[in-house]
């Protein structure tokens, strides 16, 4: 799938364009020795911001592939995971082995602070295009999703649903909108950065006057839609809307005319991982075709892996006008974004 839209992604992600191919670390294979060592360690602690169902499914699949290595998933919103991890680092505690959040800026910060180990699984070296990878392989793109709009199909007719982000500013949607919060969700922090870049803060200032219900994680707005608490979702995970829809709930995605924020969720081996071998084995597994195909087939994510086939019906990134991600730029603005947001929305 990537081969076709590679140029789109390349343009979207400012991730690794300035890299020099010579600096690549040596790709490493999953050897029987690594598997044995991982089994001796017995488990791997995975800090992940993906919806709880995703984390648990990946864990089960890994445990089936490598019996004897248990996965302990710690799920929280990205920003809370980040805070927790920092809190542990400040107390010199090593707990997490592999960490993944939906705020790519976190990885830039952690890499700068020397908290991540460089590790390049062979399959990632072969199958994930160079331009999407950190040049030192201190983190790798685990999955890609979008932050999208959405609506409850029982409460809103398809032709009456908003088509664009600015449609949400219509007074008729006042009190009917739900979104998640950039202080808790990495997806929303990233989305806030991209949307305010494309539409200006003006947009958020007006949106804040629409009596928006604010939940914490970007995985929650689709659930608030599905129970009918709000009719319209301004921002939330594309894959959770599609998962919720697949469970038979009356929800539908809207790809905004202005485009949808692109959310890359990298994953990385923690430098002081208490179980370094299990961590490397798990990171290799996350990048494998099998695991990536499962994300795409069962959980409506998008993959960077060349060998993964996109299921029919999933619109391509160019069709939905995915916005450009720029993790490096987010790093310097985290505090400013949260502050600006708080000024408009109150929390």
């Amino acid at each position: 799938m990537i081969a076709r839209t590679e140029w789109v992604l390349g343009a979207l992600l400012g991730l690794g364009l300035a890299l020099s191919a010579s600096a690549q670390p040596r790709p490493e294979r999953v050897t029987p020795a690594l598997i044995d060592a991982a089994k001796k360690e017995g488990r791997v602690v995975f800090y992940s911001s993906a919806d709880i169902i995703v984390g648990e499914k990946v864990a089960k699949a890994f445990e089936a592939a490598y019996p004897g290595v248990k996965v302990q998933v710690e799920r929280n919103g990205s920003e809370r995971l980040f805070q927790k991890f920092q809190q542990e680092v400040s107390a010199r505690l090593a707990i997490a082995d592999v960490i993944s959040t939906s705020d790519a800026a976190h990885f830039v910060i952690w890499k700068r602070d020397g908290l991540l180990a460089s590790y390049l699984p062979e399959e990632a070296a072969q199958q994930i295009p160079l331009e999407f990878r950190d040049k030192d392989a201190t983190f790798l793109p685990w999955r890609l999703s979008l932050s999208v709009m959405g609506y409850n199909t029982k409460l809103v007719k398809p032709d009456e649903a908003p088509k664009s982000l600015v449609d949400l500013l219509d007074p008729k949607w006042s009190g009917k909108i739900v979104k998640a919060h950039p202080s808790y969700s990495g997806t929303i922090l990233t989305a806030t950065f991209q949307i305010s870049r494309e539409l200006g803060w003006d947009y958020y200032e007006k949106l804040a006057k629409q009596k928006v219900m604010q939940v914490q994680s970007a995985t929650e707005p689709p659930k608030k839609l599905s129970i009918g608490e709000r009719a319209i979702m301004a921002e939330g995970n594309e894959y959770v809307v599609l998962l919720t829809k697949a469970q038979g709930n009356p929800v539908e995605v809207i790809y905004a005319k202005e485009g949808s924020p692109t959310i890359v969720s990298p994953s990385a081996v923690v430098k002081n991982a208490p179980r370094p071998n299990a961590a490397r084995l798990f990171q290799s597994y996350l990048m494998s075709r099998e695991a990536q195909q499962m994300l795409v087939d069962d959980m409506f994510m998008r993959s960077f892996h060349r060998g993964v086939k996109m299921p029919a019906g999933m619109p391509s990134l160019s069709d939905v006008k995915a916005m450009r991600e720029d993790a490096e730029a987010v790093v310097d603005q985290v505090e400013a974004i949260k502050e600006r947001y708080r000024r408009h929305f109150g929390t």
Binding site: D51, I52, R75, Q216, T219, K223, K224
Partner: peptide, 11 residues
């Protein structure tokens, strides 16, 4: 509390 963060009321 963590489950509530992502709205999993049933669980």
């Amino acid at each position: 509390y963590d489950l509530n963060e992502s709205g999993d009321l049933g669980a």
